[in-house]
């Protein structure tokens, strides 16, 4: 383990209409991005409950990426903007308690932005490489 390079594990909660389709496009157009992302398909970024983000982090995921439509493009009108409030709140809670809020990212990626999806995952992977493994991964008492 110590010899091998740290490969961050990212849980991706992606909305059906934009980012998930964008991730699909990244695949079909053979964009390269780190394999450490595990994608969970949601109908809308606004459907995310933070309980699942927290579960991922407390179980040891190195980062959580929530992907939604650009503002104005939400299939359900404004789910993404409600998600933004929820994520801002989550990061605020984390900051007050001294938890690393950079382990939660929210990004707008459209269905046509396969390249941006791949680039975002590469960028997040890089950011998490420099932060190192999620310290919660080794905590049993949670």
């Amino acid at each position: 383990m110590s010899d091998s390079k740290f490969e961050p594990r990212i849980v991706g909660f992606l909305c059906h209409w934009c980012t998930y389709t964008g991730a699909d496009l990244a695949g079909t157009t053979r964009q390269q991005y780190p394999a450490g992302i595990r994608i969970i398909h949601l109908m809308c970024s606004g459907a995310i409950d933070v309980v699942y983000v927290l579960k991922s982090l407390l179980d040891g995921a190195d980062g959580v990426l929530i992907g939604g439509c650009h503002p104005g493009d939400c299939h359900y009108q404004t789910g993404n903007l409600k998600a933004r409030r929820r994520i801002a709140l989550l990061r605020s809670v984390m900051e007050t308690l001294g938890l690393d809020q950079e382990r939660v990212w929210l990004r707008w990626i459209s269905a046509s932005e396969g390249r941006l999806f791949a680039q975002t995952v590469r960028e997040y992977d890089g950011a998490l490489q420099s932060r190192g493994q999620n310290p919660l991964a080794d905590e049993w008492d949670l």
Binding site: L54, K55, L58, R86, L89, V93, D138, W140, D141, L142
Partner: peptide
């Protein structure tokens, strides 16, 4: 989960309970 971490506190999800409640109603 116990295998992944070596051990887990039981009942599980104590910190998660409080963090989630914070997010839901603080």
């Amino acid at each position: 989960w116990a295998k992944d971490k070596g051990a887990i506190r039981m009942p599980a999800n104590t910190v998660m309970f409080h963090l989630t409640r914070l997010n839901h109603m603080v």
